[in-house]
Amino acid sequence: MPLIPEEPQIHESVPGPRAVPAAGRTAPTPRPVPGPRPAPMRSAPGAPRGPVPAPPRRAAREAAVDAPAATPQIQLIPASPEGALDAADEAVDLLLDSGRAPGEVLVLTTGDPHPWAAHELSFGEASYWAQHDAGDDVFYAAADADRALARPVVVVVVNGGTDAAVARSLPSAMARAGALLIVCGDPQRVNALLAAGV
């Protein structure tokens, strides 16, 4: 009876491959197993072993309140007081066509109200402001409407009003604009008021 050589034993402490592939064949690369990632382990001496608890999550709104307010970009669209509403409507159309959600846009008028606002106010202030609070569509209001809340884009229509009223409206509109403030009006008048008050 032929002698069978004793098989070598592989101990866990011995580094290296567990099996040798046959000549001409490569060993398959182990693939990661999908599933949750293990939590990092505590390494401080005396600390209990186990996963490190994740820091508490804060709501995005809380984080936004804590973050310093960034100054919005300002764009000026030249328009006469008579043509400012049309310029604002074109600006809103371009914003929506470029991917802005309707609820991200607030339009403020310094003179006569926008025709949409006048129409909606004919049904009563409660339903008008309910549309504002829903925040799912472009909202039109008077520039001095304190109840109109901040939105990412604010469009100011300088379609009338005294210089003092417009001068008060511009800083208020800038404070409401999260990313972009668009002013539709006479460039000389707007620039003079911006330089004086904003």
Rank of each mutant, 00 (worst) to 15 (best):
residue 47 A to K: 11
residue 152 P to C: 01
residue 118 A to T: 07
residue 194 L to S: 14
residue 146 D to I: 10
residue 69 A to V: 15
residue 48 P to W: 13
residue 98 S to M: 01
residue 40 P to L: 00
residue 85 L to T: 09
residue 44 A to K: 14
residue 70 A to P: 00
residue 91 A to M: 01
residue 160 G to S: 10
residue 113 P to D: 02
residue 184 C to P: 04
residue 46 G to K: 11
residue 130 A to P: 01
residue 55 P to T: 08
residue 80 S to L: 08
residue 153 V to Y: 02
residue 67 A to I: 01
residue 53 P to R: 14
residue 20 V to E: 13
residue 59 A to D: 12
residue 82 E to A: 14
residue 41 M to T: 14
residue 125 E to Q: 09
residue 3 L to H: 12
residue 178 G to M: 03
residue 117 A to I: 02
residue 179 A to V: 05
residue 51 P to M: 03
residue 181 L to V: 07
residue 91 A to V: 06
residue 178 G to S: 10
residue 106 L to G: 02
residue 190 V to Y: 06
residue 64 A to R: 15
residue 51 P to A: 05
residue 169 S to F: 07
residue 173 A to D: 04
residue 125 E to H: 03
residue 140 Y to V: 01
residue 158 V to N: 03
residue 144 D to Q: 02
residue 106 L to N: 03
residue 157 V to W: 06
residue 38 P to C: 02
residue 176 R to M: 03
residue 8 P to E: 09
residue 103 G to K: 05
residue 78 P to K: 07
residue 119 H to G: 00
residue 101 A to C: 12
residue 167 A to V: 01
residue 115 P to D: 00
residue 63 A to E: 13
residue 75 Q to T: 15
residue 47 A to Q: 13
residue 55 P to G: 06
residue 84 A to M: 07
residue 93 D to A: 15
residue 84 A to H: 04
residue 186 D to Y: 01
residue 148 A to C: 00
residue 95 L to Q: 02
residue 104 E to Q: 15
residue 24 G to K: 03
residue 157 V to M: 03
residue 64 A to Y: 02
residue 144 D to R: 01
residue 105 V to K: 03
residue 27 A to S: 11
residue 162 T to Q: 08
residue 7 E to C: 08
residue 134 A to P: 00
residue 105 V to Y: 00
residue 195 A to C: 10
residue 198 V to H: 12
residue 75 Q to F: 11
residue 171 P to C: 08
residue 179 A to G: 08
residue 107 V to T: 06
residue 35 G to E: 01
residue 62 E to K: 10
residue 106 L to F: 00
residue 144 D to V: 04
residue 61 R to S: 14
residue 109 T to D: 06
residue 33 V to M: 12
residue 36 P to A: 13
residue 164 A to I: 05
residue 109 T to L: 00
residue 63 A to F: 10
residue 47 A to H: 11
residue 131 Q to C: 05
residue 36 P to W: 03
residue 117 A to K: 01
residue 111 G to D: 01
residue 166 V to C: 05
residue 125 E to Y: 04
residue 32 P to F: 10
residue 13 S to F: 14
residue 155 V to S: 05
residue 67 A to S: 11
residue 82 E to G: 06
residue 13 S to H: 13
residue 124 G to V: 10
residue 5 P to K: 10
residue 74 I to A: 08
residue 66 D to F: 09
residue 189 R to I: 12
residue 115 P to A: 05
residue 88 A to R: 07
residue 111 G to R: 06
residue 38 P to V: 03
residue 99 G to A: 08
residue 124 G to N: 08
residue 103 G to W: 02
residue 4 I to V: 13
residue 118 A to V: 01
residue 135 G to R: 07
residue 71 T to E: 14
residue 109 T to R: 01
residue 32 P to V: 13
residue 156 V to W: 03
residue 60 A to C: 11
